[in-house]
Design a protein around this nucleic acid. Sequence first.
DNA 1: GACAAGAAACCGTCCAGACGGTATGTTTTT
DNA 2: AAAAACATACCGTCTGGACGGTTTCTTGTC
Lengths: 186, 186
Amino acid sequence: MSQAHHRKKHPEAVRQQLLEVAAKLSLEKGPGSVTLDAVSQAAGVSKGGLLHHFPNKLSLLDGLFTDLTDKLDQALAEKMRDDPEPKGRFTRAYIAVFFQPEGMADGEKWQVLTIALISEPHLRERWRQWVDRHLQENIGTDSALDAMLVRYAVDGLWLADLLGSPTMDAATRAAMMDRLLAISRL
Amino acid sequence: MSQAHHRKKHPEAVRQQLLEVAAKLSLEKGPGSVTLDAVSQAAGVSKGGLLHHFPNKLSLLDGLFTDLTDKLDQALAEKMRDDPEPKGRFTRAYIAVFFQPEGMADGEKWQVLTIALISEPHLRERWRQWVDRHLQENIGTDSALDAMLVRYAVDGLWLADLLGSPTMDAATRAAMMDRLLAISRL
DNA sequence: GACAAGAAACCGTCCAGACGGTATGTTTTT
DNA sequence: AAAAACATACCGTCTGGACGGTTTCTTGTC
């Protein structure tokens, strides 16, 4: 190790690596283990290297937030593109992204962020804005009470996953998804 | 200060005070500020005093968990008692407790715990058990898919409150509650 | 294409503060 | 007198981050 000095430099790759490692670390060793030391080490970079890309810890989490919301937006847009029915389109995309099997592979990465989201006012504000933006963008098609209700239910499901609550069996899960989709069309 | 030595002793009151202060502190200064020093000081007790009641930090959070779930159980039981219709009774109590105006006064105290719930395996397990217990106790009356859906929606609402997401206006909120109650009766 | 020169990408060390927890004393209650 | 309910002092560790160096890349100039 410590040869990163001499190997070829891929700053963008390293940056991405740091973000992924941060999320991964939180999952495997708990969110408390996401320290600058641990992240940098697990990413094969020195702490100085980490602090070069992200001047402080909040900046690292902020980067992770941007990364994950971007991917989420992308996934949502993709799902919405394939949906012919305007009414409740966003809500259905919201459902689909949550329920897609590999989707959770990304969804799990939100663990650290969720904590940071509660703790850090700055990230709370960014989250507020994210929600608000999608609310505005899909006003008219997804403002119905039932649509909101469905999205809140998805959030609740997501939280239950995060907290490792008694997971329901696959069949119930599928039925739940169908029901949510149905309501989104009412 | 530091006169606690000489004033009358009410250990149970001090214990309660410590729990309340911990929750309150989290709300006002953020969950990160819930340290043994801060809590003990804000409660007018020395750190030694705090550690007498709760041998370590996890124990403090565990106490808070017990305290809040007890109150929650009590509130739920009360609401259920006043509900003549068996079907969805628990789910309606769940809704009512969340939507009651002063109910949130207690609900906000969950902030620190939520973080601890994600981080600490022990508390996650306790939460799992709490959910599971109520699921078992109300099997038959509240196992319907729609009932689950409603409860997940309430959780989502609760999370949104916690994250300070764009709060909906009182009218929408009331309508949402009505809708949830309606679904619980389907 | 060569080459200087500055910028960018890293490394390694050190530190100051915070935090959880221990150990031990003192007062109050029983 | 013994135990419970506190207080005081202290310690070890961890963590975020500052700092100054070293290596690689890029850019402008000829």
